[in-house]
């Protein structure tokens, strides 16, 4: 899942380790999310959004096909 986590993190000058500790996961988990190798749980997505004071949709783009013709 595409995401803007790295951009948000860079904007506030946080390291991956800082963010990892802030949301109680490992630094590797933050790295995996930023590299699109791991999709976080809803709970972690909420934690990240709350941490950056934004909406989940601002952080994550699931690239859902919302065209009703494709249903």
């Amino acid at each position: 899942m595409k995401n803007e986590l790295r951009r948000y993190r860079d904007e506030v000058g946080l390291s991956q380790a800082d963010l990892a500790a802030a949301v109680s996961v490992s630094r590797q988990t933050i790295n995996a999310i930023e590299c699109d190798r791991y999709d976080p749980s809803i709970e972690l997505a909420f934690k990240l959004a709350r941490y950056f004071d934004c909406r989940i949709e601002d952080l994550f783009d699931p690239e859902l096909d919302t065209d009703p013709q494709n249903d």
Binding site: V12, A21, A22
Partner: peptide, 14 residues
Amino acid sequence: MANNSSEHDWLTRR
């Protein structure tokens, strides 16, 4: 946002 040194400490302890 929390203090960076305490966050690093948390990761180190973990």
